[in-house]
């Protein structure tokens, strides 16, 4: 316990921003506390009661509109600064850059399952390269969890039945705590893990090492065939169901009017609740897969649909090598809430 710290390590681009906000807030807190405490202290000494039946002068003002206005308006101005500053940090923290590395996380009592698009699967550990934005798309198989990495100053609830996302750019290699921050039952405090931030080269070595069972998209393709999805979803418009190539990221016209953006949440919903948003011109013939496939399998299917999307996305082979030139389609999505 030698090196006692007041701040957790700063290991993401967000961390210094949050810490600067902290310094400001602490400064305001100290300033007002000192002003109030010293005033009270001074008054308490200066105007202490000197005899039991002492009465202060009864004719002083006990209303001061100028004062009231001053001490309402000044704090209000300061809180406006706090709001704006806080909101701008939050805004950055909610908007992942387009070239972010896509990783999926599934919370399950009481473990974190993390999946790289290349197919590496980790439990309670996440290996990522330094200096590159990482975007997590997360869901839960049971209750609400929360993905919390103090060193990155980032936290996002992981909610069953929907996708939420968060992102960060690690700035320092090392090993950082991962906590579940939303109470999830008996072993909540055991739902912890480590984030390993590695040099890009080490990360590549790590990625290529270890046996994988194929990339997420490849597994998704296998599943797509096993579940006989391909019987109806043909590559052209001859099937009973809409074709999926070039679907991801596009605007889809719906039966009954309206459009929806084909993002991860939409694809997930279409697999689990096909009747929810039916594509214009098609009959609602698709059966539901709710309860038949796991959240991880849904992720594989989603990744497969993304991989046959319009742009060369985070395909299995080339991902992570020259990310800057190949903006992933995933990045164009707004933070999915």
């Amino acid at each position: 316990m030698g090196n006692f710290q007041f701040l957790p390590e700063q290991a993401s681009t967000l961390a210094p921003e949050v810490d600067h906000l902290l310094y400001f807030l602490v400064a305001v807190t100290v300033f007002f506390s000192v002003v109030i405490f010293s005033t009270i202290f001074y008054f308490a000494i200066r105007y202490r009661r000197r005899s039991a039946n002492e009465m202060p002068d009864a004719h002083q003002a006990h209303n001061g509109y100028t004062l009231e206005i001053i001490w309402s308006v000044i704090p209000f101005g300061i809180t406006l600064v706090m709001f704006t500053w806080g909101a701008s940090v939050f805004f950055t923290a909610s908007r992942p850059p387009k070239d972010a590395l896509q990783i999926y996380a599934v919370g399950k009592r009481w473990m974190w399952k993390l999946e790289h698009v290349e197919g590496q699967r980790e439990i309670n550990e996440l290996h990522i390269p330094v200096g590159r934005p990482v975007r997590l798309t997360m869901t839960s198989e049971d209750v609400i969890h929360s993905f919390f990495v103090p060193a990155f100053r980032t936290k996002q609830d992981v909610v069953p039945g929907r996708y939420t996302s968060t992102w960060f750019t690690p700035t320092k290699t090392g090993k950082y705590h991962l906590f579940c921050a939303e109470f999830c039952g008996t072993k909540h405090s055991g739902m912890v893990g480590w984030i390993y931030v590695m040099e890009p080269n080490d990360y590549q070595t790590w990625l290529s090492g270890g046996a994988t069972e194929g990339s997420l998209a490849e597994n998704g393709k296998k599943l797509f065939e096993q579940l006989a999805c391909s019987n109806c979803h043909k590559d052209d418009t001859t099937g009973r169901c809409p074709p999926l190539p070039n679907l991801f990221g596009s605007q889809v016209k719906l039966a009954g009017g309206g459009t929806v953006k084909a993002d991860e949440a939409y694809i997930r919903e279409s697999i689990l609740q096909p009747q929810a948003k039916v594509v214009a011109g098609y009959e609602p013939v698709m059966p539901t897969f709710q309860g038949l496939i796991s959240e991880e399998q849904v992720l594989q299917l989603v990744e497969y649909v993304k991989s046959i999307g319009p742009k060369p996305g985070t395909g299995p082979a080339d991902s992570g090598q020259n990310p800057a030139k190949k903006p992933s389609t995933a990045g164009s999505m707004p933070a999915n809430r």
Partner: peptide
């Protein structure tokens, strides 16, 4: 310190 929690960017880190 409640003002810390109301500041969005700060709340992400310190909530829960």
């Amino acid at each position: 310190t409640g003002l810390f929690l109301a500041a969005l960017g700060m709340d992400i880190h310190v909530t829960d």
